[in-house]
Design a protein around this nucleic acid. Structure first.
Lengths: 228, 228
DNA sequence: CGGCATCCGGGAAGATACTG
DNA sequence: CAGTATCTTCCCGGATGCCG
């Protein structure tokens, strides 16, 4: 026997006027916010999303993309020929969800249960730099830093106490980090010296090494909560 | 045949070092963040949580409270006699999740699908005032406002462009709003005149009505995204 | 290969009843 | 009032297969 409220149009929602609850109606399903995170730095194809989200299955990814599209958070777009592949791109409102991703990330950085050895995507690590940047530590520092993580390239600019970043070519930057996302994480958050990381084969640093070293000090982690 | 990663200890987690993903491991389950929201303004009993969260079932609430407690986000505490009832209270780290609740609420306020006519708890509406407060609109304004919503009382203080609020008695405030959470929402976000709300029997305003009216103008809603 | 539809097993959520 | 027990429903995850 099927009993459900007549207003229920199939979806499971919170019946709550609170904005927070409505946000969870929109992006509270499993994987939804991580799909948004992966698109925060620009559009991606289905397969790239899938490989950047360890563990998501194809049908769930399809469902989330449908849901987020019908909510107005992303659009399915076909690139112009000859590269006429399909990509998923956040709408303006979808990009406005970045503070959500950031507040979650900043908050969870204090968790005693956080395991930094798990895999991490290039988009995640680049976004985390935005989140953890400390303007006070960048006093009088001005630099453009390039990143080559797998097949993706990013550029970050520091100046006037501000941090800006996005996809972009590394040409003309002061220093370039080349390697894996965990390698970059180890340099920035793990305080690992460049030599150790190069020896481990997970990160190479070229260009102005002094600037590069200074760069890695701009992203302090908050103190951990003592384990319960 | 049962195939699962050995690291899986029963729980369904994202295997992702990203802080955002870890936050979702902690508070990403259904209802979890709304339980946190209801505790943001102070401890509550099981039954109060249940009645303030429309639709949650007792067993799910039990599971979430267990999960949040073992994550170190709340503690189960027994009030001293004679009122020796049990309450749930956020830990310091739990309270630090407020920016998450706020960023979600602020973001979702732009949603075209948001339905403000749904029920809303006293805690939700009081938290939303913190979220939506606009310091620029409070230039030169100084007031203490009381709220009596159902059986709960709150006090908000505006001054120096800051907004502070919490549970508290309404004695000595400049004006007092008495009524239902939707009534207060209609006054602040719906721009309804006090008379209409009093006639509807959902809100009564006492004290300095000019201050009370000014108060209701300090919480502008962002513009809606056009429906998809 | 990219993008889906479909089927199935397990488990989480929902509803209700029950107990101290 | 504060949960527990049980049953049902539905979502998630994995596998497979279709179609361009």
């Amino acid at each position: 026997m099927k009993l459900q409220k007549i207003t229920d149009s199939g979806k499971r929602r919170y019946d709550d006027a609170c904005g927070t609850a409505h946000a969870l109606d929109l992006i509270g399903e499993r994987w939804a916010l991580l799909v948004m995170r992966e698109l925060m730095l620009g559009p991606k194809r289905f397969g790239d999303l899938r490989s950047d989200l360890p563990g998501i299955s194809a049908n769930v990814l399809t469902q989330r993309l449908e849901g987020l599209e019908s909510a107005g958070l992303l659009v399915k777009r076909r690139l112009p020929p000859p590269a006429s592949t399909q990509v998923y791109e956040l709408t303006a409102w979808g990009y406005e969800a970045e503070p959500i991703v950031q507040s979650l990330g900043k908050w969870a950085a204090r968790s005693p249960a956080h395991d930094p050895t798990l895999p991490i995507s290039a988009t995640s690590i680049m976004l985390s730099l935005r989140t953890m940047f400390d303007p006070a530590r960048a006093e009088g520092f001005r630099a453009r830093i390039g990143f080559r993580l797998g097949s993706e390239s990013f550029v970050a600019s520091i100046g006037e106490g501000r941090f800006e970043s996005g996809r972009g070519e590394t040409a003309g930057t002061d220093a370039v980090f080349t390697g894996t996302p965990p390698g970059l994480a180890a340099a920035v958050y793990g305080g690992q010296p460049f030599e150790a990381l190069e020896d481990a084969g997970i990160l190479k640093v070229e260009g102005d090494l002094v600037m590069a070293r200074r760069f890695t000090t701009l992203f302090p982690l908050p103190s951990k909560v003592k384990a319960p």
